[in-house]
Design a protein around this nucleic acid. Structure first.
Length: 880
RNA sequence: GCCCCAGUGGCGGAACGGUAGACGCGUCAGACUCAAAAUCUGAUAUCCGCAAGGGUGUGGGGGUUCGAGUCCCUCCUGGGGCACCA
């Protein structure tokens, strides 16, 4: 019988319809069964899915289908992270309403996701921009406000003075607004924040319990929280040098041991002392103003050239009243960290040493290695401008000399704790954290409204619960920059819920990270009248496997960890004291692709891969913009992103090769945690494999035994070899799916396919039965990865059930053990030969056999072995 | 600038501290074909050699070990994050 080619696009639609009609993937809360909650980070509805989504959702789907086959009640939901800037930008650019744009995008992307054949329970779909979702977020917000977990404070924003609007960091390019080109300023604005610092210590300590999180993510979060032990220390300001009302300067330091190496003080440009000094010093004021133009991002501030301005103020050294150090305003000191002021010890801090060199400040080594010549070398290096950061012994430090830095730290702390300045101790020990509270105010339209009212008499008044949700007005205008809510003619004008007088609504909306900080909890009971349903949380939480991009390693994941704690504290958690929402985390690598842009235009105008034509190979590749025929620039390979437009539309592949093909390619080559470069070759290889499986199934129906044939009593060597290969694959595939090592699982399936192909050219006792067994196992193992092909093969193999509902096959563990093993034979660690021995052979027996080998005798060159190391079933190493 | 990660054939990558290069791609040779596609078979790290065999090899340098791609130190290169992109 000649096989027709498997028509993937056509059959995939068929099977998707079958799953939908039978509601195969609908999940109910069923406490009688073990649960498994598999979640992938939900997408931003940009309009089209890209290969990154395909990769992410395929991984989750494989796991969901595998766990379902293993008997778990699997929750695998999907939704939309639907608020955010792009919708508002689209509104400005294309005169379409953000809601319309977003919902159209959702419809389009939902269609695309459905065409991927994901085993999702679509009945649980949520969109964060839907009032039915954000009403609950507003409820949680009010509960957090009542518990003082939400509060208002001043915080800095990027201010575009021309457009009169707040800019996101990504909208600031080289210090200028992306539309207006105006120099951006820092501005202080009253803004809402969540008190994430309330949980600092807990968020830090609980990282230790997250055993199924990647070590690197835990490390990144640990560093982000940034616990440091140090000294809060007050320095007296020399009389007559400081502005009126400023008699001391409070600093935080982690290196009080280096106090005798202090050569300057540095304060942030917006430190109160700097502001006071700037009032009477125009040049200083100008310098501070310049610093404010650096934008608000730490990356910009810290990578800018180190600059300072001597205020003329002097600080008095706590151990020597005659020793005064100058106070500088410096552009690299952040007001948000510690007290916004430091003392600089150039010899033992690289940043300080560069600063000192630039401004001709003294550099005094106070820590050095104990012994020469290393001590001399270290001191010489310091004078060359390389700070000494290692441990050692105190020098040039009076009563600290000879102590270790740790002991010196204690000595300084103890002494200064006992001394007084203005009636209070000069210093106290303090644990400081880098983590700051989470500013959630956004001066934008397309976000969840913050449900409070500002009343002239009553102050901040929460919107009464029965009036929720506070809904975004439909008739906002997007033709101008700035916040459409703020300039809306009527929306913000309301009566105070408390006193009834005219008042105004809060026009800030919430950071979209808030939306994504609890959607996983909402999925467990998406129709509940309250934000969460306790019983559903108790059963489903925590998420058993969370999968998403490494770019979310810090913010989204930390915010979610915080939010789940806050939900517990405000009565929206489960009945257990579960604080961590994600039991296991997997961070997939990104899908990367080249970037293309128009030649000779700044700022860059990016082009989609489909907008360019590429000719040539290797170094001679050249791109042309299709629409204009002009040459385009081929840029670096970067993560696929909307902003760089280096996206590939998976629709083409799904339409031409099938979703299974795209899925298989995404799983095959690259390890899932590593970046994968999208290529066409990989796709065609996957397509070939699909056809190959199809032919193997066909051969099985022709040559192997029929379904449910009696198992033979005797298997010849050919049949045994195939059975071994099949069960070894079954063992390995299960292990590797469980560990999310899909590329290795895929390789096992290739190997099994090779073994099966070869077997069709052979004959032997029981082989026809083994072939059927191997084919069925192959199809069942493929099922989670290529589900449509799996169903089609399953039917062809004679089953009238759904593979998606079939249990995972049982392993015959006895088939995993071979009678003989091949072990390597080394002489002095160098492989010389190999040896096939019985699996149960004793060490002495193996050693003797190894010594008899020609290759070993030759390599020994007559020398007598000193020692022979035998690792059973592994290796023999002869040492001479 | 700070924090984190990665580096293995022509390419993507395998490899409990124990035979480096599984598996896939590509390439070459062959079979089938009027021809092509598809499919099948074989070869394929590199250097010396007709071969047998041997040397060298996991970004560079050093170390621990009987044995290092794997552990330690150090350097180089590439990537991610840095609090208003999501």
């Amino acid at each position: 019988m000649a096989t027709e080619r498997y028509n993937a696009p056509e059959r995939e639609q068929h099977w998707q319809k079958v799953w939908e009609e039978k509601e195969t993937f609908r999940t109910a809360t069923d406490t009688s069964r073990p649960k498994c909650y598999v979640l992938e980070m939900f997408p931003y509805p940009s309009g089209r899915i890209h290969m990154g989504h395909v990769r992410n959702y395929t991984m989750g789907d494989v796991l969901a289908r595998f766990k379902r086959a293993q008997g778990f009640n699997v929750l695998h939901p999907m939704g939309w992270d639907a608020f955010g800037m792009p919708a508002e930008n689209a509104a400005m650019e294309r005169k379409t309403h953000p809601a319309k744009w977003t919902y159209e995008n959702i419809a389009a992307m939902k269609g695309q996701l459905k065409s991927m054949g994901l085993s999702l329970d679509w009945s649980r779909e949520v969109a964060t921009c839907d009032p039915s979702y954000y009403v609950h977020q507003q409820r949680i917000f009010l509960d957090m406000l009542a518990k003082d977990l939400a509060y208002r404070r001043k915080a800095k924003v990027n201010w575009d003075p021309v457009d009169q609007t707040v800019l996101a960091n990504e909208q600031v390019i080289d210090g200028r607004g992306w539309r207006s080109g105006a120099l951006v300023e820092q501005r202080d604005l009253a803004q809402w924040a969540f008190r994430i610092t309330h949980y600092t210590q807990d968020l830090l300590e609980a990282l230790g319990t997250l055993e199924k999180w990647p070590e690197k993510v835990r490390l990144m979060q640990e560093n982000w929280i940034g616990r440091s032990e140090g000294l809060m220390m007050r320095w007296r300001l020399a009389a007559g040098t400081a502005p009126a009302g400023h008699s001391e300067l409070e600093i935080f330091t982690t290196r009080p041991d280096t106090l005798f190496g202090a050569s300057f003080m540095a304060i942030a440009p917006d430190h109160p002392l700097a502001k006071a000094a700037a009032e009477k010093n125009a040049k200083l004021a100008a310098f501070c103003e310049e610093c404010r133009r650096m934008g608000t991002s730490v990356a910009e501030i810290e990578s800018a050239e180190k600059m300072g301005f001597d205020t003329g103020i002097k600080a008095v050294h706590p151990f020597d009243p005659n020793w005064q150090v100058p106070v500088f305003v410096a552009n690299f000191i952040l007001m948000d960290y510690g007290t916004g002021a430091i003392f600089g010890c150039p010899a033992h801090d690289q940043r300080d040493i560069e600063f000192a060199k630039k401004y001709g400040l003294p550099i005094i080594p106070v820590v050095a290695p104990k012994a020469e010549p290393r001590r001399g070398e270290a001191i010489a290096k310091i004078h060359e401008g390389v700070a000494f950061l290692d441990d050692g012994e105190m020098i040039n430090s009076k009563f600290l000399d000879g102590l270790s830095p740790t002991a010196a730290f204690d000595a300084v702390a103890t002494r200064l704790e006992g001394e007084k300045l203005g009636g209070k101790p000069v210093a106290e020990r303090k644990v400081n954290y880098r983590l700051r509270d989470w500013g959630i105010s956004r001066q934008r339209y397309w976000g969840c409204p913050i449900p409070v009212v500002h009343c002239g008499d009553c102050g901040i008044v929460p919107v009464p619960r029965e009036q929720l949700p506070v809904v975004l007005p439909d008739d906002a205008s997007f033709d101008l920059p700035g916040n459409p809510l703020d300039r809306h003619p009527t929306w913000k004008h309301v009566d105070c819920p408390k006193c009834g007088k005219a008042a105004t609504r809060e026009t800030d909306t919430m950071d979209t990270f808030v939306d994504s900080s609890w959607y996983f909890a909402r999925f467990t009971a998406p129709d509940a009248a309250t934000p969460t349903d306790r019983a559903a949380l108790d059963y489903w939480m925590p998420v058993d496997q969370y999968i998403g991009g490494i770019e979310h390693a810090i913010l989204h994941l930390l915010y979610s960890r915080f939010f789940y704690r806050a939900m517990g504290e405000t009565g929206h958690g489960g009945s257990t004291n579960l604080r961590e929402p994600f039991a296991a985390l997997f961070t997939q690598g990104m899908v990367v692709h080249e970037t293309y842009r128009r030649a000779g235009i700044e700022p860059p105008q990016w082009l989609l891969p489909t907008e360019v034509d590429i000719k040539g190979e290797g170094d001679k590749r050249q791109a042309t913009e299709l629409a204009t025929g002009k040459p385009a620039v081929i840029g670096s390979i970067e993560k696929m992103s909307k902003s760089k437009k280096n996206l590939v539309d998976p629709d083409d592949i799904i339409a031409n090769f099938g979703a299974d093909c795209a899925r298989w390619f995404m799983l095959s080559d690259s390890p899932p945690e590593r970046d994968v470069i999208w290529t066409e070759a990989g796709v065609s290889s996957a397509g070939r494999f699909m056809q190959r499986v199809w032919r193997l199934v066909d051969q099985t129906t022709e040559k192997a035994v029929a379904k449910d044939a009696m198992k033979p009593g005797k298997f010849g060597p050919e049949a045994m070899a195939l059975r071994r290969a099949a069960h070894k694959a079954l063992d390995q595939v299960a292990r590797n799916i469980e560990a999310l090592r899909f590329n290795v699982a895929v390789a096992q399936l290739y190997e099994l396919s090779n073994a099966l192909s070869e077997s069709f050219g052979k004959s032997g006792d029981g082989l026809a039965w083994a072939q059927r067994e191997a084919t069925e196992l192959l199809v069942q193992m493929l099922g989670p990865m290529m589900p449509h092909l799996g169903e089609e093969c399953w039917t062809r193999l004679g089953y009238n059930t759904l593979l998606a509902e079939a249990p995972w096959p049982k392993l015959e563990a006895a088939l995993l053990v071979d009678d003989t093993v091949v072990i390597a034979v080394q002489v002095n660690g160098k492989r010389r030969d190999e040896l096939t021995v019985s699996r149960t052979a004793g060490n002495g027996e193996v050693e003797a056999a190894a010594m008899r080998l020609d290759s070993v005798v030759r390599a020994l060159e007559g020398r007598t072995p000193k020692k022979v190391i035998v690792v059973p079933q592994r290796i023999v190493n002869v040492v001479v």
